[in-house]
Design a protein around this nucleic acid. Structure first.
Lengths: 103, 103
DNA sequence: GTTATGTGTAATAAATATATTACATGTGTA
DNA sequence: TACACATGTAATATATTTATTACACATAAC
């Protein structure tokens, strides 16, 4: 079966990718879907900051998350990469622009 | 001959597209390459603001510009759309992330 | 009980991006 | 000369985004 092609919201995707931390987060999530505290250590950024960035990535549909319970009983929020494939062309941008709020 | 595929700088492109005005500017430039003052009237934004946005689009390689002399002798800066086609995938993002300055 | 781990959020500070206003120049025409 | 229309920039104000700090709560292990 083909991967479902969720119709991405271009403005949200652009906003999400317009940041070096968030690009690195996506890169890190390719190999391992990790829980937040571990990711924060790997990327060497604070957990509240990481959470803020993950939220934007999730709102854009580029990652998803869920709660898991670890072996020792702790609730952990685990993020995983969505396998997106988005094409940027003048027409695609124009299509998105047409959907923008009038003013 | 095939269209030259300029290797776009992903961070610059993302920054450029992360703005509703700039998306509308690209949409407008599809049909007509216009000069700045005309574009400003069409899009109903101030000329200095438009210039700022066009600068970002040009730095990202999404538009280009040149000076032309109109029939009545005025110098006009005319912008035209670059025919970009950029693919956004986790791997492409990771590739760009790897090139980011260390810190 | 204290320590170490995880979760989550709120308040604030700092840095960037966006937008406006004002002014400068030059050309052609009435 | 004054007007209309083009270019360009600098200074400033406003808004948004990013980042930090300080909390709160829960579970397991010592």
């Amino acid at each position: 079966m083909s991967s479902p092609k969720p119709t991405h919201n271009l403005p949200l995707v652009m906003a999400a990718l317009d940041n070096p931390h968030r690009m690195r987060i996506l890169a890190a999530l390719r190999s391992s879907s990790n829980y937040v505290s571990q990711l924060a250590r790997d990327l060497e950024i604070s957990r509240p900051l990481l959470i803020m960035h993950l939220k934007k990535l999730e709102e854009a549909g580029l990652v998803s998350s869920g709660l898991e319970v670890s072996a020792d009983g702790k609730a952990m929020r685990v993020y995983q990469l969505e396998d997106f494939d988005i094409r940027l062309t003048p027409d695609e941008v124009a299509r998105a622009a047409a959907k923008l709020p009038k003013d």
